[in-house]
């Protein structure tokens, strides 16, 4: 491991790598026993940026988030969240973070409004000129769409409504960095849409940096400025949904109709094909549609490519051992 442990003590005092960098992760490693869950993860995030962390189950997404939140000690590498090392972050630093964990927190006997007002009060000492803490409780309840349920006990809410309470708890302190671990699990489509609006509002208006994990690729495509794909303990690809799709050559599907009949074709050169189609049939062509690879197609292709590459490497290593 090529980690320079000596420099770590100064990390918290060091300014971030650049103006507006809120997350700075370099060569992050995590080992459980002999198992390397994270094997050199590096990425940065800017103020107001939304990052989606994707990856198969067990890829290390939750572990990464937990290390950044300061809930879990890393085995190696450097991490700075708002300029501080999460391993040694104090209360003042913690007050600037928001966390929504994967599982419900149980506060079933509290009323929604009462609970949020109570939790919010802990943030009051950390209010600043720029960021008033906590979030006004009624405004917050409205922002997460729980106004009509404000007087209900948490235990009486549905799964999706309880998840909204989790989100509200995560943002009550008006965090500058927000971690969301599968935030929309159990949301109906309308709740999901409202949640997306909330994420956009936090990122665009309040300049919140948001790191979220999800298995909903459609959601990642809608929300994230940048998508990180984690597999085998490393980030195997990162970029916008569009950038990722251009990395992989997946055929596009072209559909059209002519004389009331519908046709479909598959091609890697959709534009040329469509040009040819019009040259041949001109105005007879209707209902033209070009469907490019979805983020799901791209994701599956990237993960599969990575896994087959890893299998190849393992096979080569085996051959080398066998030959030697």
């Amino acid at each position: 491991m090529a980690v320079t442990a000596g420099a770590d003590a100064l990390t918290a005092a060091e300014p971030p790598a650049g103006e507006g960098v809120t997350l700075d992760v370099r060569d992050l490693r995590m080992r459980y026993g002999t198992n390397d869950v994270l094997d050199g993860v590096s990425f940065t995030a800017q103020r107001g940026e939304v990052l989606a962390l994707l990856g198969p189950n067990g890829a290390g997404k939750t572990t990464t988030i937990e290390i950044l939140e300061g809930f879990r000690m890393r085995s190696g590498g450097q991490v700075a969240v708002l300029g501080a090392d999460p391993a040694t972050g104090d209360e003042r630093w913690r007050a600037r973070l928001g966390v929504v964990l994967q599982s419900w927190r149980d506060h079933s006997r509290w009323q929604v409004r009462e609970l949020l007002a109570h939790l919010g009060s802990f943030y009051a000492p950390y209010s600043t000129e720029r960021i008033r803490r906590p979030w006004d409780v009624d405004e917050l309840i409205e922002a997460v769409g729980l106004t009509v349920h404000a007087g209900k006990k948490v235990g009486q809410l549905s799964g999706g409504q309880r998840r909204r309470v989790d989100v509200a708890i995560g943002i009550v302190g008006r965090p500058e960095v927000l971690f969301l671990d599968e935030p929309t699990a159990g949301f109906d489509p309308a709740a999901r849409r409202e949640f997306h609006d909330l994420v956009h509002r936090l990122a665009d208006l309040d300049d919140t940096t948001i790191l979220l994990t999800t298995h909903d690729l459609d959601e990642a495509e809608k929300l994230a400025d940048r998508i990180l794909i984690l597999a085998g303990g490393r980030i195997i690809a990162s970029g916008s949904a569009d950038e990722l799709s251009r990395r992989i050559s997946i055929d596009a599907e072209v559909r059209w109709s002519r004389d009331g009949q519908r046709f479909v074709h598959s091609t890697s050169t959709a534009t040329a094909f469509v040009r040819e189609l019009f040259a041949q049939h001109g105005e007879d062509i209707a209902d033209l549609e070009v469907r490019r690879a979805s983020l799901e197609d791209t994701y599956m292709a990237l993960v599969r490519e990575f896994e087959s590459g890893r299998a190849d490497r393992a096979a080569r290593a085996f051959e080398e051992v066998a030959a030697g």
């Binding site: 997946i250 055929d251 596009a252 599907e253 072209v254 559909r255 009949q261 519908r262 046709f263 479909v264 074709h265 598959s266 091609t267 890697s268 469907r291």
Partner: peptide, 26 residues
């Protein structure tokens, strides 16, 4: 294998869409 969407196979099988000649050959 054909580079089309999953639902498209159903459309083709039910005859809702016809494949292009090239796709038919594939």
């Amino acid at each position: 294998a054909l580079g089309v969407h999953y639902q498209t196979i159903g459309y083709l099988e039910r005859g809702e869409f016809s494949p292009s000649l090239h796709l038919a050959l594939r």
